[in-house]
Design a protein around this nucleic acid. Sequence first.
RNA 1: GCCCCGUUCGUCUAGAGGCCUAGGACGCCAGAUUCUCAAUCUGGUAACACGGGUUCGAAUCCCGUACGGGGUGCCA
Length: 467
Amino acid sequence: MTSTVPRVRFAPAPTGYLHVGGARSALFNWLYARQTGGVFILRIEDTNPELSRPELIEAILEPLRWLGLDWDEGPIRQSERGDLYRDAIERLLASGSAYRCDCTQDDVKARAEQRGGKPGYDGHCRTREVAEGEGVVVRFGVPDEGVTAFDDVVRGHVEFHNADLEDFVIRRSDGTPVFLVANAVDDADMGMTHVVRGEDLLNTTPKVILLWQALGLGEIPVYAHLPLLVNEQRKKLSKRRDDVAMGDYVERGYLAEAMANYLATLGWGPPDGVEIRPMAEILELFRLEDVTKGSAFFDPKKLDHFNSTYLRALPVEEFVRRARPWLEGDDVPWASEAWDSGMFAELAPMVQERCVTLADAADFVAWLFVDEVEMDETAWTKAMVKGKHVPEILDAVIAGLADCPWQTDALEELVRGAGDAVGARSQVPVRVAVTGSNVGIPLFEPMVLLGRERTLARLRAARARLP
RNA sequence: GCCCCGUUCGUCUAGAGGCCUAGGACGCCAGAUUCUCAAUCUGGUAACACGGGUUCGAAUCCCGUACGGGGUGCCA
């Protein structure tokens, strides 16, 4: 009888950046650990020296921290525990559960083709007593008969016929163990009580269990295979073709709490239907056994909705603080000395209400800080070319602006009056002339901040383009 | 091919045999509001894959079919 405290782990391979699917797995593990008073362990599955890139470990840890998924133990690197796995393999060899094989991959393939029917290894070396040497691997001898089964928290009872499993490699020809061995050994050694991971690993589970049993590691952990996160084509998210790197979402101005909240609704739903809520509540409501079975589409539009909702709920000072990296960084369209944080703070409430991501903030205020506005030509055509009485409106506004009180109310009254005089809408043409766009934050408050001279200059420039 | 898993509105989900005329959310559409755009409010659109059972009664249980996905590596 070991500890009764639940122990779970997130065990990524450092072969790429953390993507949304991995983050969701980490989140569900974390939720389970935190709600049960359990232990959340981070383990790096870098058993393959050729593919793993140590420099990527930080690229996995960083977004996990960002999401607030703190771990209690680790990161434990499997590459540093090679002795344990080598020892396990020796024991399997000694007990006859595993054997050496010197077949090349071409041999295996050729025999399979000759046999016809099913591909895979045929157990050719089971009784050949192959000696250690160059190009020799170790394979696990899967029993010819019987069933390997387990009860999955989300999928129920799952069975695999041993006859369908081939004698899989457990030690590569370079002497390194494959993850299946490391998995069994570490899950036992670290006392994992639950293994919560993506469904793409479901098929590897019987192999790990077989190793587990052959090694006499005791009771197997409880497995829970999460539904896959898929793209619009319903295919497993792929780092190559899908927009899934967690770090990209950070850079694009998504809030960690919005992302974590959204991820929690993929493969699970709160019983009362309230999706957007603090993680503390999700922690109370989440049940591993309520996880859904079907794969879930990672919907960027719904993420946007979560994000803008979280963004609007922020106290305005907090919004300003968190938007800062996107406003005072190197990518802004204005000269850094033109930036006026006080001015932004004044306009922040109206910006905040319109942002989907933090990165959007810059677009709403850029026209206040650039020397010359970048004209949206579509907006120009729509408002200025196709608009009615635009020249008259601009002339009237330019004339009136010269000496009107420089205040929000007065500006609004003047612009409206110019439109009323000719029976047309005047706000949009003025907006396009001054901001370069037909959409944006309310016009008159920022116009006050822009100043009389710059406002007039832009209006005159626009007027000059018209007949 | 073989093995495994899955299937409720376009999407994410609620639903544990009668509470379902199948609920919510995103999206979409329409209206209200409005200095534009958003936001907000109101309304609308839209689903139990199919076929057999079991049962007085099935989205819920069983079987089959179809479709989708995952795996089938000396990747994890």
